[in-house]
């Protein structure tokens, strides 16, 4: 695949490639050096420093729910519980978003009617008001629906926030698919719905992967929605958990933080997202290519 694209699309300047790679790497990694260094440093500090000694103690502290000293006296944490909550929220979000975005993205791609652009724009803009101003109405609404202290409820609200973007993305992928693909399926006796599941969806693998990944990220990193909807500490997702254990004031330097475990937790936090991306990249894209080859 890449070799074909390469032959066609771009000159093969290997040197240029390396320059791009190294520049990007420097830009991405320089800020993170501190994070990585601090998560293994025996003597963590708020600034980048050469570690006095290497330790994995901070990771163990996080994974065993060891009480954290946040500048003051040690207090208990519920890391594993928070990670579970986050997994529930983002898992549900992925399921809801992938399903609904696939259906409506396909529908919007194939339907032709006046005012489609307007509808699309309205969908995209649905979450346009500043989120902080929206929290009061949202809270009242969710309380009526019983979504307070309810992880699934939170996943539903988070999904509604990320759906517009994902519908747009998937619509783009459906638009790219040649129409004769589904027409062939109809000729073979499929109806519209089964054509979608048998032929169309398998062919937008990369699109589904993107949508799944992005909705996972939005569930995993959700902050504002759980902030107002969750009232019990044991139901916190990890984003709220980090914010409550590691205190800081915006704009203030020299924070009240146990830096070692904080950074270890941040590193652990990154693992599911990256693992998911690699998994999706490897699996979904392969499936799609195989299908095309058969055809």
């Amino acid at each position: 695949m890449s070799s074909v694209l390469k032959k066609i699309g771009e000159p093969s300047y290997t040197l240029l490639e390396y320059v791009v790679l190294i520049t990007l790497m420097i830009y991405v990694l320089t800020p993170l050096l501190w994070l990585l260094e601090t998560s293994v440093n025996t003597d963590p500090t708020p600034y980048l420093s050469i570690p006095k000694g290497i330790t994995i103690d901070h990771f163990i502290a996080v994974l065993t729910n060891r009480p954290i000293t946040g500048g003051y006296a040690a207090h208990p944490v519920y890391m594993t519980r928070w990670i579970m909550n986050s997994l529930i929220i983002s898992g549900t979000t992925v399921i809801i978003v992938v399903m609904l975005a696939a259906l409506s993205g396909y529908s919007l791609s194939r339907l032709r009617f006046k005012g489609k652009n307007l509808l699309m724009t309205l969908i995209l803009l649905s979450g346009f008001m500043p989120r902080m101003a929206m929290i009061l109405p949202l809270f009242k609404l969710c309380r009526t629906l019983g979504f307070v202290d309810n992880l699934i409820g939170i996943a539903i609200v988070v999904s509604s926030g990320t759906l517009p973007t994902q519908i747009w993305i998937l619509k783009g992928f459906f638009d790219q698919l040649p129409r004769d693909l589904e027409e062939q399926a109809w000729i073979c006796g499929c109806d519209r719905i089964s054509a979608v599941f048998r032929v169309i969806l398998p062919n937008v693998g990369p699109g589904l992967a993107v949508v799944a990944f992005m909705s996972f990220l939005s569930g995993w990193g959700a902050f504002t929605v759980p902030l107002i909807l969750i009232r019990r500490e044991y139901l916190f997702p990890i984003s709220l958990g980090i914010a409550s254990v590691f205190i800081h004031n915006p704009g203030e330097i020299g924070l009240v933080v146990d830096y070692g475990p904080t950074c270890a937790l941040a590193v652990l936090y990154a693992v599911p997202s990256i693992a998911l991306y690699i998994l999706l990249r490897e699996r979904l894209m392969e499936i799609r290519l195989a299908r095309l080859e058969v055809r």
Partner: peptide, 14 residues
């Protein structure tokens, strides 16, 4: 009932 330090004010007011 709790909310983290960052966001407590918003939660309280809401």
């Amino acid at each position: 009932i709790t909310a983290p330090h960052r966001g407590y004010g918003e939660k309280l007011i809401t």
